[in-house]
Design a protein around this nucleic acid. Structure first.
Length: 572
RNA sequence: GCGGCGGUCGUCCAGCCUGGUCUAGGACGCCGGCCUCCCAAGCCGGAGAUCCCGGGUUCGAAUCCCGGCCGCCGCACCA
């Protein structure tokens, strides 16, 4: 890990601001912590990263993953159900003397030995006053207990009950629309619902530049599957080994990750679910295209107390960048049936799915049969009152009554011979259950920063951004060698042709050719085309490669195809 | 949220301590022109800073004082 490489980080940030990748928002009003603008180049870079993500997580899996878009604002009920309202509100209290901040409930629980879980701030306040609790650090007086929630609150319409929140993750949109998507997908399982969108988290003190934002773009898949279905993912599709640092080894102080194939990690019980391991392998293949080799990515398993309330197992995908060291670029959580079950409970909507078994099963069931003729004989007209009650009896209950000889139901004596328990063979064709969920989730802005950090190099005092061509904001630069009209007009024509072909292109005739190469190197343009005098003779141009400065001659007619061929996976 | 340090053209830096000489200086970058047959060459010209914001002290504030905002570091917090 290249910790503490502050000089490089400063240069990356300087480049980002100077050339227009990103900068702090609202600068003219003094800025606002935790908010960043993406500039002309940053917006393109992020768009390319987003499209790359869509390619890996949606289009390469379009037999099972679909894309949706849901609102940023959600009503309070959603976050009550999701657990965010509860789990993100901490009661905190500050010492008025030394200003240390404590979790109020934890402080009281520790110092008084009473259970404070779930207490309201008023109760905690009262308790502090009553027992005279003071700051454990300096003995100073404690201030008022306040709550702090990471959700941004807002209001929908002019109504008092319109309390709503900005989503802190896209996931709830996928859960609340699950039934619709599932139906429109003709009940396929497994099914992934993907979304790219803005989220907001009211971080207490975000002070890591682009690493920790209060508003950012999340790229997320909620992948729904049948936990009992023995289908295994096709691990051959995204080959590679995963470096995994397990919770167990972290507990015992081991910081060295193990390297395993994803399927081995499942077989050995390191990763609890095959789909979790599968999507981790996809995540690794995806970031490889951003410039991160296999060896540079580590999946760190979160300790139980570090996990979110909904997760059974979580791996953070970490990469090392300058200045900040290991940063989390994605989280992979096994959310089980937590979310759908909660929404089922809170909304009253049935979130279960029905699946046919591969082979119908035969099962022996014991049923209660009521002999209505016998019943009428002994109870006459009143028989109707008890018949349904009797039918709802479990087989065991009925048998007990039969053994006792008679039974009193609804104040009526029912003879035992009115009941019989029969054994029947029933064919079971399917079952109902709440699907389980695996969630891979990426922060787009962090990937922008990581891509820049990885790509940043200096060669002989000049900056070369070695961005992979697929994500480079501009793919091609076109220059006339000198500003002579014949060269210019050819260069202009090439520029226009490249634009028509759908490439992002820079045309520049300002300054010396060397200066122009340097300018486009700095923003990561992978290929530069120079129209020179030889072009006028034989119709070829110089293509100069950013990373090697190598020059090759290419015919104008082949140029676009030549460039396009260097973007594997592009639609061109 | 607290404490320490900082905030001057796009960028980096000088000036601040010791108030006036600052209509704020330099370098790089940027823009226009000239020159130029391949890696930040040269020449000419130009734009660009209400010195972070607000208030105060003073005849006079980039400079001194107070408050705010933002950034960095530490503490605390952190799905």
């Amino acid at each position: 890990m290249s910790l503490g490489d502050e000089e490089k980080y400063d240069k990356v940030v300087d480049l980002a601001m100077r050339r227009g990748f990103f900068w702090p928002s609202y600068e003219i009003y003094g800025g606002l912590a935790g908010f960043y603008d993406l500039g002309p180049l940053g917006a393109l870079l992020k768009e390319n990263i987003k499209n790359l993500w869509l390619d890996y997580f949606v289009f390469k899996h379009q037999d099972m993953v679909v894309l949706v878009e849901t609102p940023v604002i959600a009503p309070e009920a959603v976050f009550k159900a999701s657990g965010h309202l509860e789990s993100f509100t901490d009661p905190i209290v500050a010492c008025s003397k030394c200003n240390k901040i404590y979790r109020a409930d934890h402080l009281l629980q520790d110092s008084l030995g009473v259970r404070t879980e779930g207490m309201h701030p008023e109760e905690l306040n009262a308790l502090i006053k009553e027992k005279g609790v003071r700051c454990p650090s300096c003995g100073g007086e404690l201030g008022e207990v306040r709550t702090f929630n990471l959700l941004f609150q807002t209001n929908v319409g002019p109504y008092r009950h319109g309390t709503a929140y900005l989503r802190p993750e896209a996931a709830q949109g996928m859960f609340t629309s699950f039934k619709r998507v599932f139906t429109s997908m003709r009940y396929t399982l497994p099914v992934g619902i993907a979304q790219v969108g803005r989220v907001a988290r009211n971080e207490i003190s975000p002070r890591q530049g682009m690493v920790r934002l209060r508003e950012f773009t999340i790229m997320e898949v909620e992948f729904f599957f049948d936990p009992e279905e023995p289908i295994t993912p096709d691990f051959n599709r995204f080959q590679g080994r995963l470096k995994i640092l397990t919770a167990e080894s972290r507990r015992s102080g081991v910081e060295e990750p193990i390297t395993v194939k994803p399927e081995e990690a499942v077989a050995e019980g390191i990763v609890l679910n095959p789909w979790l391991a599968y999507w981790m392998s996809v995540a690794q293949a995806f970031v490889k295209e951003i410039g991160l080799g296999e060896g540079e990515v580590v999946f760190e398993e979160k300790l139980p107390e570090e996990r979110a309330h909904y997760s059974r197992q979580t791996f953070d995908q970490l990469v090392a960048i300058s200045r900040w060291g290991w940063v989390e670029i994605s989280g992979h959580a096994y959310r089980t049936d937590y979310d759908l079950s909660r929404h089922m409970q809170f909304s009253g909507e049935d979130m279960t799915v029905y699946r046919e078994l591969r082979e119908p099963k035969e099962a022996v069931v014991r049923r209660v049969v009521v002999d209505e003729a016998v019943l009428r004989e002994s109870l006459g007209e009143e028989a109707v009152k008890v018949v349904n009650i009797l039918k709802s009896f479990k087989a065991d209950e009925a048998e007990r009554m039969i053994k006792d000889g008679e039974v009193v139901v609804a104040g009526l004596r029912v003879p035992a011979n009115a009941l019989r328990v029969v054994e029947e063979v029933e064919v079971i064709r399917g079952r109902r259950f709440v699907p389980h969920v695996i969630e891979p989730s990426f922060g787009a802005e962090r990937l922008v920063l990581v891509a820049l950090d990885k790509a940043y190099t200096e060669e002989g005092g000049r900056v070369v951004l070695k961005l992979p061509p697929r994500i480079a904001p501009y793919k091609l630069a076109v220059f006339p060698l000198v500003t002579k009209d014949q060269l210019r007009s050819v260069a202009r024509r090439i520029y226009e042709e490249a634009v028509r072909a759908g490439l992002t292109v820079i045309y520049d005739e300002d300054g010396s050719i060397g200066r122009r190469y340097a300018r486009v190197d700095e923003i990561g343009v992978p290929f530069a085309v120079t129209v020179d005098y030889r072009t006028l003779d034989d119709g070829t141009v110089t293509v100069r490669l950013r990373d090697t400065r190598e020059q090759v001659r290419v015919g104008i007619d082949d140029l676009i195809r030549w460039v396009a061929n260097r973007f594997t996976g592009s639609q061109l």
